[in-house]
Design a protein around this nucleic acid. Structure first.
Lengths: 393, 393
DNA sequence: CTGAAAGCGCTTACAG
DNA sequence: CTGAAAGCGCTTACAG
C-alpha cells in the first residue's frame, strides 16, 4: 500500500559535497545568483557535480523555500475544440521554452472552476493562470480571487483587465469583410456565436463596422451555437430571412460546416449562389465540398504570446493587453467566388425551389457554376502553406 | 521584480489553534487518519476551522513532508488530434474526481520527452504518468527511467508492460469487418497507419483476422499517414491496385475524410460503388457528403479508465492491462450501403472513367444510387446518440 | 567572498 | 489518547 518514494534522490547537499562547497553556494550558483562571487572554476565544478549526480531539484521544496514553482495553469473551456487545442499547444511549447511546466484545467462547469482554482493556486502549485475559459459572469471573475494571482486572458477580452491576449478579432473580421466585398458581394450574412461569448461579439462587431464604413447594407446576423448544428440553423435562418444574401461569414469552423450543409439542403450552389467564408482554418477544410475558404489565425502563436505576457507579469511587469495584429490570412479555396450579375436578381426566387438546371457532370465539383475551382488544385495548393505536424493516432 | 507571495496564507497551525488542538491532530484529522482517536466533536471543530479560515494545504509542503502530490502527468502525442483530446478530457475529469491535478505534456519530439520527464517526475511534481505518446523505440521506454515511477499506457500496447489501457481495437476492427460483411461486401480494403504505430497495427490485424475466419479475400491494406492527405493517397492506392474493392475501412477520421475525397475524385459513387466506414466518430461526420458511417469509441471513458488504473498502482496494486471491451458501436450514416449485384461486375471498368449516367437531380444527395439515404435523416437521427457538450469558442 | 542557520508548511514516528 | 519534535529539500538573509 505504501508507494515507494524515489529510492534515493540526489539532493542539493550531495552536489555541494561533491563540489566541495556548501549548500548555499551550490544553490546560488545553480540558480544563477548574480550576487554570488565564486571563481569560474568552482562554478563549473558545481554544475558538473549536479550533472553527473543527475541532480533534479525538488519542486516542492523549492516552492516551500520561497522560490518559484515554475508552473502555470491553463484554464480551457473545451479541450476538443480545435481552436483551443492549438492555443494550448502554443502555450505548452512556449512554457517549456521558458522552463515552465503547465497544469491543465478544462473548465467546463462553473463548479469546477472553483475547485480548480483552489487546487492550483490555493495549493501553491502554480504561479499564474492562463485563462481561456472566462465568460461574462464567470465565477473566477466575480469572486475577486484573481486579484491575488498573476493571470492573463487568452482569446478573451475582459474589459479593463489589461490582461487580454488576443488575435485582432475585429481586424480579422474586417479582413473577412473586405475579402468578400472585393469579390463583389454587397449583401452579406454573418453567423455569430451565443451572445454571452466574448470572441463572438468582437468578430461580429468588426464585421458590421466594416460594412458600415463601406456603405453597404448592414449584414444580417444569426447567433447560433458553436457547433455544426448551430451553423446549420444559422445559415437557414439567414437565408430565409434574407434571401438576397450572396455571401456568408461564419464565426467558427464547425458552424461553417453546418452552414455548408444547410446551403446544400436549400439547393444553393456554392459559391455560384452563395459564397461561404469560414473563420479559422483546419486541414479538413480542403476536403469539404466545396473546399472551404477560410481565415487562418495564429492560434499557436497566441498561446505562446499569452505565456510570455504571463511570465512578464511574474517578473513584475505591469499587466497590459497584447493583440497579435495583422496576422489573419485568407486561405482561398472554392467556397467563395466573385459575385455574378445574375445573382443579384436571383433573390427570393431560388429559395426552396431547388435548382433544376441540368449540369454536364453530376459528379463532385460539377456544381460550381462560377469559376469552377479545381478542387484538386485547391487541395494541393492553398494560397498560403500551413505548416503540418505529424499526427499520431 | 519580486512577485509577491500570497500575502498571508492560512496554515495548518492556524486551523489547529482555532480548533484548540495541535498541528499533529489537525493534520491527521484533516487527512482522515484512521488511527487517530478524537471525539467526533473535536474532529468537527477542526474541519469547521479549516473551512472558515479557508485553509488550503500547501502542495509543495505536503509533497516535501512525504505525502502524495496528488498530481498526474499526461503525455500526449498530439493535442490537436481529436482522439487524444477526448482521451485527455476523460483523464482530466476522472483525475479531478479522484482529487488529482493533471500536468500536461505534449510529447511531440523525443528530445522533449526527456526534459518533460525530468521536470515532472524528476522534480517530484507528479506521482504517476499517463502515457499516450509511446511509440516503439520511444526514449522513455528505452531509458528504463519508467521503472521508477507508476505509469500506464493509454491507447497503446507496450508488450509485457502489463500497463496497457486500451479500447479493444481488434474487437472494434472485427465489428467493422462484420458490419461490412453483412452488407454483402466481400472485397474490402483497409487504410492503416504508419507501420510503427501500435494502434494501427492492432486495428489492421483485427480486420484481417476476421476476414480470414470469414473465408473471404484478405483485405488489401494501404499504410498511410494519419491525415487527410494520407487517407487520400491510401484510397487512391487501394482502388488502383484493387479495383474490385467495394468497401473501405479507414483507420482514422482524418484518413476517412481524405478517402472520401479521393473516391469522389476517382468518380466513385459512395456508397453505390464503394462503401466507406470510418474508425472514430466526430460530429462533423454527419455533415460530410455523404454523411460518414463511423465507429464510435469510448475515448473519454478510456482516459478515465487510465486514470483509475494509474491510481490503483499508486495504491500499491500490481499493474495490469485493462481493455475497455465491447463498447465500439457503428453509427450508420450514408457512406455505407448494401452490396449490389452490379457492383460485383463493375470492377476495373469504372476506374478513372468517371460515370456518365444522368441522374435526376444533381444536387447534394443525388449521387446515392443505392438506398438513397436521406442525409437529413442520417444527420438528425444517428443510430446512437452521442452526448453533446457545449462548445465554447 | 563564503558558511552556518533559520525557516518555508507540512507529516509522522515517538514520547508521554 | 495527544503533543513535542524532527525532518522533508530547498533558499536567503545574515554573520563572519
Amino acid at each position: 500500500m505504501e508507494p515507494s518514494p524515489p529510492p534515493t534522490r540526489t539532493r542539493l547537499i550531495d552536489v555541494a559535497n561533491a563540489a566541495g562547497v556548501t549548500k548555499s553556494v551550490a544553490s546560488r550558483a545553480l540558480n544563477g545568483d548574480s550576487t554570488l562571487n565564486v571563481r569560474k572554476e568552482t562554478r563549473v565544478r558545481i554544475f558538473e557535480a549536479a550533472s553527473t549526480l543527475g541532480y533534479e531539484p525538488h519542486a516542492g521544496a523549492k516552492a516551500l523555500a520561497g522560490s518559484r514553482t515554475r508552473a502555470l495553469a491553463l484554464l480551457l473551456p473545451d479541450l476538443t475544440n480545435a481552436v483551443y487545442a492549438r492555443i494550448a499547444r502554443g502555450a505548452y511549447q512556449q512554457a517549456r521554452e521558458r522552463g515552465f511546466v503547465v497544469l491543465l484545467a478544462e473548465d467546463t462547469e462553473d463548479s469546477r472552476a472553483q475547485s480548480d482554482y483552489t487546487d492550483l493556486v490555493g495549493a501553491g502549485r502554480v504561479e499564474g493562470l492562463l485563462i481561456a475559459s472566462a465568460r461574462e459572469g464567470h465565477p473566477l471573475l466575480e469572486s475577486g480571487r484573481l486579484d491575488k494571482v498573476p493571470h492573463v486572458f487568452v482569446n478573451r477580452s475582459v474589459a479593463e483587465s489589461n490582461r487580454n491576449v488576443s488575435v485582432d478579432l475585429m481586424g480579422a473580421s474586417s479582413t473577412a469583410f473586405r475579402y468578400l466585398y472585393e469579390l463583389g458581394h454587397r449583401n452579406m450574412g454573418h453567423i455569430s456565436g451565443p451572445g454571452d461569448l466574448m470572441p463572438a461579439r468582437e468578430r461580429e462587431h468588426g464585421f458590421l463596422e466594416e460594412a458600415k464604413s463601406a456603405g453597404v447594407a448592414v449584414p444580417a446576423v444569426a447567433r447560433a451555437a458553436y457547433s455544426e448544428a448551430g451553423g446549420y440553423e444559422g445559415a437557414q435562418q439567414l437565408m430565409s430571412e434574407n434571401p438576397e444574401i450572396t455571401a456568408i461569414y461564419a464565426g467558427t469552423f464547425s458552424q461553417s460546416v453546418g452552414a455548408l450543409s444547410a446551403l446544400h439542403a436549400l439547393g444553393k450552389r456554392i459559391p455560384a449562389d452563395v459564397s461561404l467564408l469560414s473563420y479559422d482554418d483546419l486541414p479538413i477544410a480542403a476536403y469539404l465540398e466545396p473546399p472551404l475558404t477560410t481565415m487562418a489565425l495564429p492560434l499557436q502563436e497566441l498561446g505562446g504570446a499569452a505565456v510570455d505576457a504571463l511570465i512578464d507579469q511574474l517578473h513584475g511587469a505591469k499587466p497590459r493587453d497584447v493583440i497579435l495584429a495583422g496576422q489573419a490570412a485568407i486561405i482561398e479555396r472554392a467556397s467563395t467566388g466573385r459575385l455574378h450579375t445574375e445573382q443579384i436578381h436571383q433573390g427570393m426566387g431560388n429559395i426552396g425551389s431547388g435548382t433544376t438546371d441540368q449540369r454536364p457532370d453530376p459528379i463532385h465539383d460539377s456544381r460550381y457554376a462560377t469559376e469552377p475551382p479545381s478542387s484538386a488544385l485547391a487541395r494541393s495548393r492553398p494560397k498560403r502553406t500551413i505548416k503540418k505536424r505529424g499526427s499520431n493516432d
